[in-house]
Write a protein that binds this DNA or RNA. Structure first.
Lengths: 122, 122
DNA sequence: GCTATTAGTTAACTTTAGGTAACTAGTTAC
DNA sequence: GTAACTAGTTACCTAAAGTTAACTAATAGC
């Protein structure tokens, strides 16, 4: 007890827990589109974001994928879906209060991506 | 000039740039393993991290995937690979100075993952 | 010579993520 | 009645991601 080996084992265990937590994040937010959708929505929280508008805003995403990803995000309480009584009907998607917890992550990823392009150019 | 439409277009454009940057990040760090490997390495910068040790530390990763992902990360200047003159030979992987730029991202993802599990449990 | 360690590689396979295109359905305008 | 808008859905397919297991090669101990 109190040995170096024990300390090592404790750290090892807490490391595993961290990796498990990150695995969860990756499962939920991973793939080609989810973080892009979240970022798009956080950039326009004050406006209405209907399906077609989001699709136009995110280059290359198909209706099928957008629909599927939005469903997943809704299940994970990240976005809400509200049907608007307009002609033709529009469906509004917006980020939830809880969903804003992802903003620090996307902020970092934007910064990192910008910086990495610089870095690699050498 | 100076119209609402113009402002909107400018914001639209900067949003696209952000999404492009994040796409880069996702391309480089996406998938099941890369961020886990980076996290594992940042948790033990002071020690030697040879291939087998990393594989034991990250549940479920195969030699093939670990090898491939480490190569990718090396290409992107995130980790260095050094052959150690031990018997049997060991190969050490460590995070680069530049690679530490990813720590804020993995920190966030660990926190987010822990928090999300709580959230969903309701 | 057999076993075990290291660090991978290779081939063969399965799974899943994602793409494409055609389709439904409700409404409006011409 | 046909075209156009909205928001999807469905079926079919491909390509990429990932898994499994067997193998190489160098070295050491028994």
């Amino acid at each position: 007890m109190g040995t170096v080996k024990n300390k090592e084992n404790v750290r090892e265990a807490s490391c595993k827990e961290e990796l498990t937590a990150m695995r969860d994040s990756i499962d939920i937010l991973g793939g080609k589109w989810k973080l892009l959708i979240m970022r798009y929505l956080t950039n326009r929280t004050t406006e209405s974001n209907h399906f077609k508008k989001i699709q136009r805003g995110i280059d290359g995403i198909s209706a099928k994928m957008l629909s599927k990803e939005l469903k997943d995000l809704e299940l994970n309480l990240m976005v809400t879906r509200t049907i608007q009584d307009t002609r033709p009907v529009t469906v509004n998607y917006s980020i939830t209060e809880y969903g804003t917890s992802i903003i620090p992550v996307t902020d970092m990823l934007v910064q990192w991506g910008l910086n990495h392009r610089e870095k690699i150019r050498d």
